[in-house]
């Protein structure tokens, strides 16, 4: 039982980085397909397409950030593991859920919104400002989830 706390924390960290990363990979992939389609017509749009493709990538970073937070908390980075009870471990695990779940789904849907925006600037490059806001609306929830995860993590004393 003595390592259950650590194990739960590590599962949490893994899910945060893993699931948010999966979501970002899917989102960036979807946006990338759309970007490649647009660039076959006009390779000059590479710059703006890249911006749109990068947008759903942040969730993966948020997940990584949360995972590092957890690893740092349980001392996995310095090599001297802290003593984590199973209750604390469960708390840390729960803290990872917001960014793991929301990161995954929001990146996926942000990828779709990005792809649509890429189509939009293909026809109307001057509407870049509006096009960039639409996918950014989706990211709000990933930002909120990150905030929730971090505040929760800070609440768990180890």
């Amino acid at each position: 039982m003595e390592f259950l706390g650590i194990a739960l924390s590590l599962i949490g960290a893994g899910m945060a980085a893993g699931m948010a990363g999966i979501g970002s990979a899917m989102g960036v992939g979807i946006a990338g397909e759309a970007a490649a389609g647009v660039m076959t017509e006009d390779p000059g749009k590479f710059g703006s397409c890249l911006v749109f493709q990068a947008l759903p990538g942040t969730q993966g970073i948020y997940g990584l950030l949360t995972a590092f937070f957890v690893l740092n908390k349980i001392g996995a980075l310095t090599g001297s593991l802290a003593v984590v009870t199973w209750q604390q471990g469960l708390g840390i695990f729960a803290s990872c859920l917001p960014i793991a779940l929301v990161g995954w789904m929001s990146a996926l849907y942000q990828g779709r919104a990005s792809a649509a925006s890429i189509q939009m600037i293909a026809r109307k490059p001057e509407e870049m400002g509006k096009a960039i806001i639409l996918p950014a609306m989706v990211e709000t929830y990933a930002v909120l989830a990150l905030l929730t995860s971090i505040l929760m993590l800070m609440g768990v004393q180890v």
Binding site: F68, L77, T140, V143, L144, L147, I150
Partner: peptide, 22 residues
């Protein structure tokens, strides 16, 4: 509540920097 992103994003850049240093 939407303005909480100011904290979250600032946090994000500080922690990414921290991770790289680590």
């Amino acid at each position: 509540l939407s303005y909480s992103r100011l904290l979250a994003l600032g946090f994000g850049s500080a922690v990414i920097g921290m991770i790289m240093n680590l």
